[in-house]
Design a binder for these strands. Structure first.
Length: 613
DNA sequence: GGCTGCGAGACTCG
DNA sequence: TCACGAGTCTCGCAGCC
């Protein structure tokens, strides 16, 4: 491999001019990972035979070099296919440096690695060592000591591009062998540009509202600290807070410590804790406190206290650490972490923003806002999991239910609880349906949350018996009732299990695979759940790509996807194009895939996230 | 005595 | 042994200087 270190425009042009290939790998090096702060230090390229590192940091030719790179990305035949490891990152770096129209066919080796084996790390160094058998582990600091023009530094700087190129050669073959090529090229690669957009735009935060809520919640927590101790007679001293001048509790008891709460509840209140943690200790989590609700003033206040503490420590306090100078938060979306193919989000995790809690109504989601002159459109799939279940199993009962608007949860409840509701009243078109649904709301909710959805997760009779506080026999009866009503589901689960047993993997309707080598009962549950969760994840990828394309077709809308939350897409759009954009988002989501039961979308508009839901 | 790392437990979301 | 997939925070303890 011929390796060059390039610092001048002329040398870069010469290097590119001598290329005779139609494919290159690219790797960028930056000052920061965050779009708002980062600047490019340099980039490396590789064509399989030669590689170069182009240093643009404090370089007088910087603008010329980046301008030429921009030109090449659009027009040069060697840039027709661009291989990157973690494409959204390199794409956003290029975008930041003015290369905003990458028209190349892209290939992300990180994504390929995840599709081929979702159970291993996808870092470039790891893949180089384990797949390319590279043993070189030079760090940046080591390379730097040799000097920027030294062979060692050039080697370090070009390695990433070389490895990326070599991984492409291997992965591309395997993708076709494992029939992952359609998923990769038609779903994952277009979606990389959505991930790029998300990283670039971020989401607008109302910092003043965060501050306002933080003050309210902090005061509430402080008050509850006193009240909780007063209720159970724990002695404490007070101390003034230096900053807020409010009085704080000074006490040996910590109301956030589970062992101490166990002690208070059992020994001071004399209440029995039946629930256990994973390790078999008494649990003071949600389930326990819900069961003990109303039995002691302390329990009821503790529930509110825990909600407030979570809101404060988990969201209101840490959020300001993530503001960029433009008041937006740019989270990291990870496309190769969840084994089911779902996206995940971190720093901060925007997929777990608290919803409004009726018992402690602080509207955190109101702090996610649209900028001046724009609105948020929030669109989510209605009943996505049950629709995918229907698609997978082709169950006649489920198909009939969706086609004729029959209430699946009420039908199940009717059978399990022997309610004697006439079949025709289970259809929403029946004049008595709403009334009957209301009358049986409690049982219907129980069935929905404790039987129907858990079955999708592969629950056992034991699990259902625990959540409903009934015997295992009765619980098994509920499960059988559902599977008897929709026998296609039972067959689907059995088909999935049989396939897993033979092949040690299963695959979704989009061709995504999950490999499960250890065939424990849990593995069979994971396999069936994967068919639903994994396909749902690819639906949202296609939907988001459609929505992005609709936005590109109408630049005047200035429509940007700002969040993806599993079955939900949030976009920002200019106020004057809300109606057009709404229609486009709806169309983009509902046309993502062809299903026996057409997809439906629930859509809302508002200036705040919580208003639009 | 103070710092760091780590597992357990709890809680947020779909 | 017992319900799928994630990320983040705090507590409490072990180990280290």
């Amino acid at each position: 491999m011929i390796k060059s270190y390039i610092t001048t425009y002329q040398d870069f042009r010469d290097w590119v001019t001598s290329l005779t290939v139609d494919k290159l790998s690219l790797d960028t090096e930056t000052t920061d990972l965050n779009y708002f702060k980062l600047r490019m230090r340099g980039f490396s390229l590789c064509d399989g035979k030669k590689a170069c590192y182009v240093n643009v940091w404090e370089n007088k030719d910087r603008e010329l070099i980046l301008g030429y790179l921009n030109y090449c990305l659009k027009h040069h035949k060697s840039f027709q296919k661009l291989v990157m490891h973690n494409a959204p990152f390199d794409l956003k770096v290029l975008h930041k440096e003015g290369c905003t129209e990458v028209t190349s066919q892209i290939f992300c080796t990180k994504t390929a690695a995840h599709l081929i084996n979702e159970n291993i790390p996808t870092g470039l160094k790891y893949l180089a060592e384990h797949i390319l058998q590279v043993s070189d582990t030079l760090t940046y600091e080591q390379a730097e000591r040799y000097g920027y023009n030294s062979p060692k530094f050039i080697e370090y700087a070009t390695n990433d591009a070389i490895w990326t190129w070599q991984l492409h050669e291997y992965f591309n073959r395997v993708l076709y062998q494992q029939k992952l090529d359609k998923l990769f090229y038609d779903i994952e690669m277009p979606f990389q540009f959505v991930l790029m957009d998300l990283a670039i735009h971020g989401v607008q935060i109302d910092g003043k509202e965060i501050d306002r809520l933080d003050k309210i919640v902090s005061k509430d927590i402080s008050d509850m600290e006193f009240q909780l101790r007063d209720i159970v007679g724990i002695k404490y001293q007070t101390q003034g807070n230096l900053f807020t001048e409010e009085m704080e509790v000074l006490s040996g008891t910590n109301m956030r410590s589970s062992p101490q709460l166990v002690d208070i509840i059992q020994n001071r209140l004399g209440l029995v804790i039946e629930e256990k943690t994973d390790k078999g200790n008494p649990s003071v989590g949600k389930a326990t406190l819900l069961r003990l609700k109303g039995q002691h003033e302390f329990i009821d206040l503790l529930r509110k206290y825990k909600t407030a503490v979570k809101l404060s420590n988990g969201f209101l306090k840490p959020f300001p650490n993530f503001y960029d100078a433009d008041g937006r938060v740019r989270t990291s979306f990870h496309n190769g972490v969840a084994v089911t193919g779902r996206l995940s989000s971190s720093k901060p995790n925007l997929q777990q923003l608290p919803k409004l809690n009726k018992e402690y109504p602080i509207d955190f989601r109101a702090t996610i806002i649209a900028p001046e002159g724009k609105s948020l459109i929030v669109a989510d799939y209605g009943g996505q999991e049950l629709r995918v279940l229907t698609q997978i199993t082709k169950d006649k009962g489920l198909i009939d239910a969706f086609q004729n608007d029959k209430d699946i949860h009420l039908e199940t409840t009717n059978k399990s609880f022997d309610l004697g509701i006439p079949d025709e009243c289970l259809y929403s078109r029946h004049p008595d349906h709403e009334k009957i649904k209301k009358e049986n709301k409690a049982d219907r909710d129980k069935t929905k949350n404790c039987v129907v959805f858990p079955i999708i997760y592969g629950t056992t009779a034991y699990g259902v018996s625990q959540s409903l506080a009934v015997s295992e026999e009765v619980a098994q009866g509920y499960i059988d009732d559902f599977l008897d009503l929709y026998p296609g589901v039972r067959e689907g689960i059995e088909r999935c299990s049989a396939y897993l047993k033979t092949h040690k993997y299963v695959y979704t309707l989009s061709g995504r695979r999950r490999r499960l080598y250890d065939l424990t009962p849990k593995a069979f549950r994971q396999a069936f759940n994967f068919l639903i969760q994994g396909y749902s994840a690819d639906m949202i990828r296609l939907a988001a790509t459609n929505v992005r394309n609709a936005g590109l077709a109408h630049p005047e809308w200035d429509m940007k996807i700002v969040l993806i939350v599993h079955d939900e897409i949030v976009v920002e759009v200019n106020d004057e194009y809300i109606e057009e954009a709404k229609a486009a988002v709806k169309e983009g989501m509902e046309s993502a895939v062809e299903m026996v039961i057409p997809l439906t979308t629930e859509i809302g508009v508002g200036k705040k996230y919580s208003e639009a839901k």
